[in-house]
Simulated scan of single mutants.
Amino acid sequence: MPDSQDGPRFLTLTDVAETLNTSSAQVYALVRRGELPAIKIGGRGQWRVERNRLEEYIAQQYRHTEQYVAEHPFVESEPE
């Protein structure tokens, strides 16, 4: 299957880290904790994240953040 307009179907952890602007170690931790679905391929066990799973993860994080903000409103301090 050829790459789509959006790029390859599967991303390396480094690709995911670049997309999320974080470290590969952080992405590895997300995968190992089961927060970000991934597959392990090949004899050396290289991890790959399907592009649509990454997009689902991002959308989920937006929902979690919206809920957090709703439950913890920001209150500005009044000037003294």
Results as ranks from 00 to 15, higher is better:
residue 1 M to K: 05
residue 1 M to E: 01
residue 2 P to L: 02
residue 3 D to L: 00
residue 4 S to I: 00
residue 6 D to P: 00
residue 6 D to S: 11
residue 6 D to F: 08
residue 6 D to T: 05
residue 7 G to F: 01
residue 7 G to L: 01
residue 8 P to I: 04
residue 9 R to Q: 10
residue 10 F to R: 08
residue 11 L to Y: 03
residue 11 L to R: 03
residue 12 T to W: 03
residue 13 L to K: 05
residue 15 D to G: 02
residue 15 D to Q: 06
residue 16 V to Y: 03
residue 16 V to E: 01
residue 17 A to D: 00
residue 17 A to Y: 00
residue 17 A to I: 00
residue 18 E to L: 07
residue 18 E to K: 10
residue 19 T to I: 14
residue 19 T to F: 12
residue 23 S to R: 11
residue 23 S to W: 06
residue 23 S to G: 11
residue 24 S to H: 06
residue 24 S to V: 04
residue 24 S to F: 02
residue 24 S to K: 10
residue 25 A to Y: 08
residue 25 A to C: 07
residue 25 A to H: 10
residue 26 Q to G: 05
residue 26 Q to P: 00
residue 26 Q to A: 14
residue 27 V to W: 10
residue 27 V to D: 07
residue 28 Y to V: 06
residue 28 Y to G: 12
residue 29 A to Q: 07
residue 29 A to G: 02
residue 29 A to R: 11
residue 30 L to A: 02
residue 30 L to V: 01
residue 31 V to N: 11
residue 32 R to N: 12
residue 33 R to K: 13
residue 33 R to T: 03
residue 33 R to A: 08
residue 33 R to W: 02
residue 34 G to I: 04
residue 35 E to M: 13
residue 36 L to E: 05
residue 36 L to R: 10
residue 37 P to Y: 02
residue 37 P to A: 06
residue 38 A to F: 05
residue 39 I to W: 05
residue 39 I to E: 09
residue 39 I to G: 07
residue 41 I to K: 11
residue 41 I to E: 06
residue 41 I to Y: 06
residue 43 G to A: 15
residue 44 R to S: 14
residue 45 G to H: 03
residue 45 G to P: 00
residue 46 Q to E: 05
residue 46 Q to A: 09
residue 47 W to E: 04
residue 47 W to G: 04
residue 47 W to H: 12
residue 49 V to F: 06
residue 50 E to Y: 09
residue 50 E to V: 04
residue 51 R to F: 00
residue 51 R to K: 02
residue 52 N to V: 04
residue 53 R to V: 03
residue 53 R to N: 13
residue 54 L to S: 03
residue 55 E to M: 13
residue 55 E to D: 11
residue 55 E to V: 09
residue 55 E to L: 15
residue 56 E to H: 08
residue 57 Y to H: 11
residue 57 Y to P: 02
residue 57 Y to W: 12
residue 57 Y to V: 03
residue 57 Y to I: 04
residue 58 I to P: 04
residue 58 I to H: 09
residue 58 I to D: 04
residue 58 I to C: 12
residue 59 A to L: 13
residue 59 A to S: 14
residue 62 Y to D: 15
residue 62 Y to S: 15
residue 63 R to V: 15
residue 64 H to G: 13
residue 67 Q to Y: 12
residue 67 Q to S: 14
residue 68 Y to T: 10
residue 68 Y to D: 10
residue 68 Y to I: 10
residue 69 V to I: 14
residue 69 V to A: 14
residue 69 V to G: 03
residue 70 A to S: 11
residue 71 E to G: 06
residue 72 H to T: 03
residue 72 H to K: 05
residue 73 P to A: 05
residue 73 P to I: 02
residue 73 P to Q: 04
residue 74 F to V: 12
residue 74 F to W: 13
residue 75 V to F: 13
residue 75 V to R: 15
residue 76 E to K: 15
residue 77 S to M: 10
residue 77 S to K: 12
residue 77 S to D: 06
residue 77 S to C: 06
residue 78 E to S: 13
residue 78 E to F: 12
residue 79 P to E: 02
residue 79 P to R: 08
residue 80 E to W: 14
